[in-house]
């Protein structure tokens, strides 16, 4: 056993959570603008593959991440074109792309299977990384982890403190009203589905170049896209709550692996599967906060109520619907 097991565990949770955080935030941006990009699971895989292959061939992390972001954005663009401009069902287009991207990723990535490729190493922040306990947890991580953590307040600020963020939310609520106010809702939606898709792409590369380096079948990130979609919904389309959901899932995953070493009698599969139902249970508990009796209980605790109110979120009213001007 390590001398700082808790610190190691938490550092590992943070690292594991990163791709999920980046992907869920990307999807949050997309859905907040009223578009559902259901292709997440496929585009995560595809961009993980592209990121790894480009990193392997060029040795450049910058190029690798750029290529992965471009991959995620391209898939998103397809959803955008078909879903927003050609009037197809967004969910149907996204689902078809999920399957296509997945097969494409395994097919194109096959020659690179099980190769030793580049891996992002931890970057110790001078000074801060020396702090006992917090140093190893927070400040001895790959760059992607810092980026993922900074993204949470950045997106929150963009959503709730900027004029463009206000427009983004407005488009997701009522594209028709935006149109009457001189905003082109479809252009906004395309913009944000591209940004969201690019983040999903970065998340894929963050996985294949950082968390579980390499490429192979099955890829460890498979299935995470669906979890990300669920977290966005249960997270109430709020960047902070969504990120918390991603942390929780990572905690369950890493915790499961640790417990596996303690309770050896229980089959390993239990710990691998457990995070998924536990996640659903946790999210149900979070959503029970909206229940009347709990709300009434909260009335006498204004501080807590205010905090929870800030985290609360309803779906964008125009989610999945597109507006076509006359």
């Amino acid at each position: 056993m390590n001398e700082l097991p808790l610190a190691v565990l938490l550092a590992s949770v943070l690292a594991t959570a990163t791709p999920l955080i980046i992907a869920t935030l990307g999807e949050t941006i997309t859905e907040k603008a009223g578009v559902i990009n259901l292709s997440l699971d496929g585009s995560l895989l595809l961009s993980a593959m592209v990121g790894f292959v480009v990193g392997y061939e060029t040795g450049s992390f910058l190029l690798a991440f750029m290529a992965a972001a471009a991959t995620g954005a391209s898939v998103a663009l397809l959803v955008g074109i078909y879903g927003i401009y050609l009037g197809q069902l967004q969910v149907a287009v996204g689902f078809a792309l999920t399957l296509m991207c997945k097969d494409l990723a395994y097919f194109l990535g096959n020659p690179y299977s099980r190769l030793q490729g580049p891996q992002m190493i931890s970057w110790k922040i001078p000074g801060l990384s020396e702090i006992p306990f917090f140093g190893p947890v927070l400040f001895q991580q790959p760059l992607t982890v810092y980026a993922g953590l900074l993204l949470i307040p950045a997106i929150w600020w963009y959503f709730y403190r900027t004029a463009r963020g206000l427009e983004l939310r407005a488009v997701g609520e009522n594209p028709q009203a935006c149109y009457t106010r001189g905003i082109d809702p479809r252009r906004k939606q395309i913009l944000y589905i591209l940004i969201g898709g690019a983040l999903v792409g970065l998340a894929g590369a963050a996985f294949s170049l950082g968390i579980k380096p390499g490429w192979g079948r099955p890829q460890g990130i498979e299935g995470i896209g669906w979890i990300a979609l669920a977290i966005v919904i249960f997270g109430g389309w709020h960047p902070v709550r969504v990120a918390l959901g991603a942390f929780l899932f990572a905690l369950l995953q890493v915790g499961g692996i640790s417990l596996q070493n303690i309770w050896t009698a229980i089959p390993a599969q239990v710990f691998q599967v457990a995070p998924f139902p536990l996640m659903i249970l946790a999210l149900v508990l979070v959503n029970m906060l909206e229940h009347k009796s709990i709300q009434r209980w909260l009335e006498h605790r204004p501080g807590l109520a205010q905090l929870l109110d800030k985290l609360k979120g309803d779906p964008p009213r125009a989610l999945g619907k597109t507006f076509h001007p006359d």
């Binding site: 004029a163 427009e167 407005a170 609520e173 935006c178």
Partner: peptide, 23 residues
Amino acid sequence: PQDFPPLTVLENFMVGRDTEPDP
């Protein structure tokens, strides 16, 4: 009404590009 019910009154007042937006 062409507006955004979940947003606040002020936010509803602000949304729009029919003139130069003031953030």
